[in-house]
Design a protein around this nucleic acid. Structure first.
Length: 515
RNA sequence: GGCCCCGUCGUCUAGUGGCCUAGGACACGGCCCUUUCACGGCCGCGACACGGGUUCGAAUCCCGUCGGGGUCACCA
């Protein structure tokens, strides 16, 4: 039997990182067993502009490299892959259950059930819905539904224990007497999630249902649907939910705005990820660039492999020490045995570290490609791109870059005039005698040839020896004068990239500036 | 509230009765390297929720308590 797994997002307009983790586990499992990973779109509900709300999700998966064997764009033998186009399947299935006596039309009004519910609650009893018409014979049920369509409920059997043998949670048992008859279809024939998902999983031949733990409570009901249909349920594996950073609550789509902290907003502004004229409120409401979405990390320049590695390790481990591993290693070793059964909190700091590990070993050409859009967005680079210069800049930055957006912190001055940090100027440049010293050293620089890092360094050494001034102090002043800030790549590398003329010009400006 | 699930450092985790005075990683603190910042190296801080059992021996098994989460829709 070929393994078939699926991920079934609803088109929300963005790819949520909780979903990515679940999708990744599905994908890894399918890949490991040489099976298929299916993407199905659960778009039966909210009538938003679907194409637009779906594309960001597809883009996200594509960027991450989570490829789907069947689904939107690629098709497949079990289509359509949009629930909104599978209505007939659900209607047929409902009819089948009606005919076999496993479901019934429920003519009880909302008011009636509400009354019953309140009654039960007032007696501190749990309300378990059992429709009045559940005893209708199958023939009568079909006939009366045909005459007068209404909601269809599944007939939950009495006095049974439903056992779910979950691959991660173990054996989970639930008494059917605690399960109300669930609505499986509305009067107009449209199916509800708990029903549609079973029909689709069945029709698509899904063998392993890997999904978030929040679905565990629904599973017995779904098992009952499989049973009513006369088929064996697939294998279930419920993975623990992902919690919000520093929290023990689910990383919720509904509470996304809480991640839009002042720091995050400032960061987005810094990297020019949002239009400058946007207000904080507008940024907050923009779900596309929320830290709970993939797009956020993409625009900040996290490598997709880093996200995959991080999320693969969130709730799953290879062994007692491995943190960084290739996708192939994950595929080869993924299994439910090593999925943790308690929730895991998303830790952005660790993700950031992982990102750094990946960027560190990325080929220079990739880094150049990654840094260009960041620089362009920040207005530091036009369309005429000097790859050679950027290559030098990136090389000079070295391991300082953990994400591409870091290039703005370390190398902006290569692409514009220095913005002098008053504190740096005060501490390093306006030291007693330093202005004088620097002016003299500028004259030395005139004659340095070749104007490369090694030669520059040697000339500073000679100069500082002769002048009896600490090389470090001059170095610091030189850095502030030419870059405006206290941090950055090695100063001689910076000067070499800037070139002699520009270096001298900047020193001149810095020395004249009243700052 | 009913039902279900979970409970090892702040966080991610290792641990399936003796290898555990609980190992690794992120974060944090210190030191070293360094003409800045990062990188790297070393050190430190820091956890078995609690209480009972079972056992020669328990983080590991059982029971209870407490705590946390999820779910109880004609949403997905």
């Amino acid at each position: 039997m070929t393994v078939r797994t699926r991920f079934a997002p609803s088109p929300t307009g963005y790819l949520h990182i909780g979903g990515v983790r679940t999708a990744l586990f599905n994908w890894l499992f399918a890949r490991k067993h040489g099976g298929q990973f299916i993407l199905r779109i659960d778009d039966t509900d909210a009538e938003r502009n679907r194409a637009e709300a779906l594309q960001p999700i597809l883009d996200g998966f594509q960027w991450l490299g989570i490829t789907w064997d069947e689904g939107p764009g690629v098709g497949g033998p079990f289509g359509p892959y949009f629930q909104s186009q599978r209505g007939q399947l659900y209607r047929d299935a409902v009819l089948k259950l009606l005919e076999s006596g496993h479901a019934y039309p429920d003519y009880m009004s909302k008011e009636e059930t509400d009354t019953l519910r309140k009654q039960a609650e007032s007696q501190k009893q749990n309300y378990v819905h059992r429709g009045r018409d559940r005893t209708l014979s199958p023939a009568d049920a079909v006939r009366s539904f045909g005459d007068k369509p209404t909601t269809i409920r599944l007939k939950v059997p009495e006095n049974r224990t439903i056992v779910v043998n979950d691959q991660i949670c173990g054996k989970v048992e639930v008494q059917t007497n605690l399960l109300g008859d669930p609505v499986i279809a509305r009067a107009d024939g449209s199916a509800l999630y708990n029903f549609a998902t079973v029909i689709d999983d069945l029709a698509m031949g899904i063998t392993h249902i890997i999904r978030a733990k929040e679905h565990l409570s629904n599973t017995p009901t779904q098992v009952l649907v499989y049973e009513a249909l006369g088929v064996a349920p697939p294998i279930f594996a419920h993975v623990p939910v992902v919690n919000a950073p520093n929290s023990k609550e689910k990383l919720s789509k509904r509470k996304m705005q809480q991640f839009m902290t002042p720091e995050v907003i400032a960061l987005l502004r810094n990297v020019h990820a949002v239009p400058a004229e946007w207000t904080d409120e507008q940024i907050k409401k923009n779900e596309n660039l929320n830290p709970a979405t993939v797009a956020y990390y993409r625009t900040l320049g996290y490598l997709p492999q880093a996200l995959l590695n991080y999320f693969g390790r969130l709730g799953w481990s290879l062994d007692d020490k491995t943190e960084i591993m290739s996708l192939d290693t994950m595929i080869a070793n993924f299994g439910f045995e090593r999925v943790n059964d308690s929730p895991a909190s998303f830790d952005p700091q660790k993700l950031h570290w992982v990102a750094g590990e990946y960027l560190k070993s990325a080929p220079i050409e990739h880094k150049i490609d990654g840094v260009i859009p960041v620089l362009q967005r920040a207005g530091l680079l036009g369309t005429g791109v000097d790859r050679e210069k950027i290559g030098k800049v990136v090389a000079a930055c070295g391991d300082r870059l953990k994400i591409y957006a870091d290039v703005l912190n370390y190398a902006a001055f290569f692409f514009r005039d220095p913005q002098y940090d008053p504190k740096a100027v005060k501490q390093r440049l306006h030291k007693e005698g330093m202005t004088q010293t620097l002016r003299q050293f500028a004259e030395v620089l005139q004659k340095v040839d070749p104007f490369d890092a090694a030669t520059l360094e040697a000339s500073l050494q000679t100069f500082s020896d002769a002048k009896q001034v600490k090389a470090g102090d001059i170095n610091h002043a030189l850095r502030v004068a030419t870059t405006g800030v206290m941090i950055g790549p090695g100063v001689f590398e910076c000067l070499a990239i800037l070139g002699k003329d520009e270096t001298l010009r900047r020193i001149d400006v810095a020395l004249q500036s009243p700052l």
